[in-house]
């Protein structure tokens, strides 16, 4: 995670410190549904008996979130914004082992 994602500044605060928002481009969003291969699902199922962290799914959600943010940023770019503020995340489990990740925010022009 760098300061910017593909040249777009992404923050979850309403304003960007030290910058002035001059224009808004509406809500931008990105979502993705990803799954791991069945071997990892079985392994996670076994690990779940013992309890604790399921690192396969932690990794899955990490990758999915990066993809969702990437799509959101692509959306912002296509609208000519240079920052996305007030980013929120939502997660929902569709079936066991596949999660939908959704990232949304407001695309703005900041100077």
């Amino acid at each position: 995670m760098e300061q910017t994602v593909q040249g777009i500044l992404v923050v979850n605060t309403e304003t960007i410190p030290g910058m002035m928002i001059t224009e808004t481009f509406g809500v931008v969003s990105g979502s993705t549904v990803r799954a791991k291969h069945v071997g990892k699902d079985i392994f996670a199922g076994l690990k779940n008996i013992i309890g604790g962290e399921l690192s396969q799914y932690t990794e899955l959600l990490q990758e999915s979130r990066e993809e969702a943010i990437g799509r959101m940023v692509a959306d912002a770019m296509s609208r000519g914004a240079n920052a996305v503020v007030n980013v929120r995340f939502a997660t929902s489990a569709i079936t066991a082992g596949a999660a939908e990740l959704f990232a949304y925010g407001t695309a703005v022009k900041a100077e």
């Binding site: 605060t13 410190p17 030290g18 962290e53 399921l54 959600l61």
Partner: peptide
């Protein structure tokens, strides 16, 4: 504040049977 950017971390955690 000179620069800023989003940062996150997630953990999937479950109880044992």
């Amino acid at each position: 504040i000179t620069s800023c950017g989003v940062v996150w971390a997630g953990v999937v955690y479950g109880p044992s049977h």
